Amino acid sequence: MEKQFYAVYLNPSRPDFAMTMTEEERAIMTEHVAYWTEILKQGKVYAFGPVMDPKQIYGLGIVAVDNEQELKDIIANDPAGKINKYEYFPMKAVVPNISIS
């Protein structure tokens, strides 16, 4: 089965979130990084991390899954979803050794 690729955005709850996180928010974001690192190790994530856009820092991930529901499940189980909002879009990814979806 061909993988479906998505660009996944984690949008912060406020524009200055990255600079003004509370201790509780920082702990949740630490859990978030650990969670996505495990998904990365499973080969479902090609890259993830903060985008240092001068207007607002946000998270970005490039994900390859079997179907959209699998992505929804990944998002639903992410601790960062408690304090930030996700959006995602299908992506026509060109990656080594994998056909274009």
Results as ranks from 00 to 15, higher is better:
residue 1 M to F: 06
residue 1 M to N: 09
residue 3 K to S: 05
residue 3 K to L: 13
residue 3 K to T: 08
residue 3 K to Q: 12
residue 3 K to I: 05
residue 4 Q to N: 11
residue 5 F to L: 03
residue 6 Y to P: 08
residue 6 Y to I: 01
residue 7 A to P: 08
residue 8 V to T: 11
residue 8 V to Y: 00
residue 9 Y to E: 15
residue 9 Y to C: 08
residue 9 Y to D: 06
residue 9 Y to H: 13
residue 10 L to P: 02
residue 10 L to I: 14
residue 10 L to Y: 05
residue 10 L to A: 11
residue 11 N to L: 13
residue 12 P to T: 02
residue 14 R to N: 05
residue 15 P to K: 11
residue 17 F to N: 04
residue 17 F to M: 04
residue 19 M to K: 15
residue 19 M to C: 10
residue 19 M to L: 12
residue 20 T to L: 15
residue 20 T to I: 11
residue 20 T to G: 07
residue 21 M to F: 09
residue 22 T to N: 10
residue 24 E to G: 11
residue 25 E to A: 05
residue 28 I to M: 08
residue 28 I to D: 08
residue 29 M to S: 01
residue 31 E to M: 14
residue 32 H to D: 13
residue 32 H to K: 11
residue 33 V to L: 12
residue 34 A to H: 06
residue 34 A to I: 04
residue 35 Y to V: 05
residue 36 W to G: 01
residue 36 W to R: 05
residue 38 E to G: 07
residue 39 I to A: 00
residue 39 I to D: 00
residue 40 L to H: 15
residue 41 K to P: 01
residue 41 K to A: 15
residue 41 K to I: 10
residue 42 Q to R: 03
residue 43 G to Y: 06
residue 44 K to Y: 10
residue 45 V to Y: 02
residue 45 V to N: 00
residue 45 V to M: 12
residue 46 Y to R: 07
residue 47 A to G: 13
residue 47 A to Q: 12
residue 49 G to Q: 10
residue 50 P to N: 14
residue 50 P to A: 14
residue 51 V to K: 08
residue 52 M to S: 09
residue 54 P to I: 11
residue 55 K to C: 09
residue 55 K to G: 15
residue 56 Q to A: 12
residue 56 Q to G: 10
residue 57 I to G: 03
residue 58 Y to F: 15
residue 59 G to D: 05
residue 60 L to E: 08
residue 61 G to Q: 02
residue 61 G to L: 08
residue 63 V to Q: 05
residue 64 A to F: 03
residue 66 D to Q: 10
residue 67 N to M: 04
residue 68 E to P: 09
residue 68 E to A: 12
residue 69 Q to H: 07
residue 71 L to W: 04
residue 71 L to K: 01
residue 71 L to S: 04
residue 72 K to R: 14
residue 72 K to M: 12
residue 72 K to P: 05
residue 73 D to N: 15
residue 73 D to H: 03
residue 74 I to V: 13
residue 75 I to S: 00
residue 75 I to C: 03
residue 76 A to D: 08
residue 76 A to R: 02
residue 78 D to Y: 01
residue 78 D to R: 04
residue 80 A to Y: 09
residue 80 A to S: 13
residue 80 A to D: 04
residue 82 K to A: 07
residue 82 K to V: 08
residue 82 K to Q: 13
residue 84 N to I: 00
residue 84 N to K: 07
residue 85 K to Q: 12
residue 86 Y to K: 07
residue 88 Y to P: 02
residue 88 Y to A: 04
residue 88 Y to E: 06
residue 88 Y to L: 03
residue 92 K to R: 15
residue 93 A to V: 13
residue 93 A to Q: 07
residue 94 V to I: 13
residue 95 V to E: 09
residue 96 P to C: 00
residue 96 P to A: 14
residue 100 I to G: 06
residue 100 I to C: 02
residue 101 S to T: 14
residue 101 S to H: 09
